[in-house]
């Protein structure tokens, strides 16, 4: 199986270890990975802030770059949600028929990481080993945007040594919301405080998610507050084995 990795702009810049983990995990599972060197951003930050023309130019760029790709894997549910929920309207409003056609044929070949593992590769047990107590934070985009459902839990359940700690109020937003976190910093922080209480109450060592954006938010507060807890992208847990254990990132 061939797949092309869209790492996303912020993972490329801020969380390269997540990308390295995806590479290690998928290659271990026999996927022939490829990385398009011209990739930058899906346009989500612009679209969500109201910069529609700018978002469109990035959407166009994304579709052109990947139109001939067999399968695209993205370790970020919010970027996948951007492509699925917002590209159609952007392309319809600002694009042309050709772009619309290219996008329509590309769309079914775009997968979020957990979707790719379960729906495309058909694996739940990826052979991972991670002997820690972990709580899973369901990002809003993963939960309500692209409906990941129980996929993340099924993957974690098969990780040897891992002790899942259920997170109370799983469906409640952590307050990140992209530029919301600075435009409405005070409300965002109040939401974060509530979420962090729930996360800490699990007694887990790690909080994991399929979006580093939420984890950047939660991890930033954990570090500020000496919460005694770390965040880790689920790709890094799934890539971890006895031989090559993952190192916490935050």
């Amino acid at each position: 199986m061939r797949a092309s990795l869209f790492i996303t702009c912020y993972n490329d810049t801020l969380y390269p270890e997540t990308g390295r983990a995806v590479v290690r995990l998928l290659e271990r599972l026999g996927v022939e990975l490829d990385f398009h060197p011209k990739q930058t951003c899906c346009g989500q930050m612009h679209a969500n802030t109201g910069f529609r023309c700018e978002a469109f130019s990035q959407a166009k760029r994304f579709v052109r770059l990947y139109q001939d790709t067999e399968t695209v894997v993205i370790p970020s549910s919010s970027c996948v949600a951007m492509i699925r929920d917002q590209y159609p309207a952007l392309i319809e409003e600002l694009g042309n028929e050709e772009l619309g056609h290219q996008f329509a044929t590309l769309l079914p070949r775009i997968f979020e990481l957990s979707e790719f593992l379960i729906d495309r590769l058909g694996v739940e047990d990826v052979g991972a080993y991670f002997p820690h107590r972990v709580t899973y934070h369901a990002s809003c985009h993963g939960l309500r945007g692209i409906h990941l459902g129980d996929r993340p839990f099924r993957l974690l359940a098969k990780v040897r040594g891992l002790d899942q700690a259920p997170l109370p109020n799983l469906d409640r937003c952590c307050g990140f919301g992209g530029t919301f976190s600075v435009k409405n910093a005070e409300v965002s922080s109040a939401m974060l405080a509530v979420k962090l209480q729930d996360v800490v109450s699990t007694g887990a060592e790690y909080c994991t998610a399929l979006d580093n954006s939420c984890l950047m938010h939660l991890g930033g507060a954990m570090h500020r507050q000496y919460a005694g807890m770390k965040t880790i992208h689920m790709a890094q847990i799934l890539a971890s084995t006895e031989e090559f254990p993952a190192e916490a990132t935050l």
Partner: peptide
Amino acid sequence: VGGKWTQTRDLRGLPNQTFHSWW
């Protein structure tokens, strides 16, 4: 604007190597 983030949250410094350069 960055101060709006750091009023309640830390931010991890940028790693030395981006993913694409590692690749």
